[in-house]
Computed example of a mutant assay.
Amino acid sequence: MTISLSKGQRIDLTKTNPGLSKAIIGLGWDTNKYSGGHAFDLDASAFLLHSDGKAKGIDDFIFYNNLVGAGGSIQHTGDNRTGDGDGDDEQIKVDFSRIPAHIHRVGIAVTIHDATNRNQNFGQVSNAFVRLVNEVTNLEILRYDLGEDFSVETAVVICELYRDSQGQDWKFQAVGSGFQGGLQALCKNYGLDAE
């Protein structure tokens, strides 16, 4: 049975789901019927964070131009430029057993491509969600629906995966934190220069 989370909630992943090593992070959204002359292109990304909560370079940033990182333990399945259809719009695969020990946290975010020039923001996006699926059994473990809390934001940290204090098990936190400034602001938040 799927666990439905609210903003800020945390849940044990690997401890309460023995044998969970491979997961699919599915992200989805709809765009409101907004006629601004430009199509929406939302992009999922993952930031691989060290003990100080920061990414150290391009290898720690998984997105449509860098699909695999952390020794192959994190993999973006590819860019969906339209978001049309039901289900996941983009996916990030995680192999918990292979994530290097120096990675303490993985931030999962969605940004709107070229949002400023296209005059777009998350106030025009609805039904945004993240779900975590056991890749082996194909069973959905949890889901977090973001709601309609956004207006001018152009980037949103959806959730974070993080190690417990002993570094053995992984947990999930529903974040839902918005940023203005798109991908550049998000990269800066995680210690990277988006230039």
Rank of each mutant, 00 (worst) to 15 (best):
I58S: 15
H104A: 15
D52S: 12
W29A: 01
N80Q: 06
Q180R: 13
F96P: 05
D86E: 08
L20K: 01
I141H: 11
L27F: 04
V110N: 08
N117W: 13
K171L: 12
G71T: 05
I92K: 11
S165M: 14
G37E: 09
I99R: 00
A39V: 03
D12K: 08
G147Y: 12
H113G: 06
T82I: 04
I108F: 14
V125F: 02
G28Y: 08
A23T: 05
L49P: 02
N17R: 01
P18N: 01
K22W: 07
A155G: 14
L192A: 06
I62C: 05
G83E: 14
F40K: 12
P18T: 03
Y162Q: 06
K171M: 11
E148T: 13
A109W: 02
M1V: 11
L49N: 01
A39K: 13
N117T: 05
D88Y: 11
G182Y: 03
D145A: 01
D164M: 09
Q120L: 10
N138L: 14
S45P: 13
A70K: 00
K15L: 01
F129Q: 07
D164T: 08
C159M: 08
R118L: 06
R10S: 11
D164G: 11
D59W: 00
T31P: 12
I92L: 08
D89K: 07
H38E: 15
A101L: 15
K7T: 07
D12A: 09
F40H: 13
N65R: 14
G87V: 01
M1W: 10
T31M: 09
Y34H: 09
D145Y: 01
A55W: 00
Q91L: 02
I112D: 12
G147C: 06
S6D: 05
Q168F: 10
I103F: 02
N32W: 08
G191R: 03
Y64K: 02
G71A: 03
D43H: 00
I112M: 12
G71E: 04
D60W: 04
K15F: 02
C159W: 05
G178C: 11
G83S: 09
D30V: 03
A185V: 06
F47S: 04
A46N: 02
V68R: 12
E140V: 04
F150H: 04
I99Y: 01
A44I: 06
A194I: 13
N117L: 14
A194H: 14
R10M: 12
Q124F: 05
N80V: 00
T111Y: 10
L192M: 10
H50K: 07
V94S: 02
N138D: 10
N32H: 11
S6C: 01
R105D: 07
S177F: 14
I24A: 08
V68T: 09
I58V: 09
D88A: 10
G123S: 06
E135M: 10
L132V: 10
A46V: 01
K22P: 04
H102C: 10
L5P: 00
L27E: 11
V136R: 07
N80Y: 02
S4V: 08
K93D: 09
L49E: 00
I25L: 15
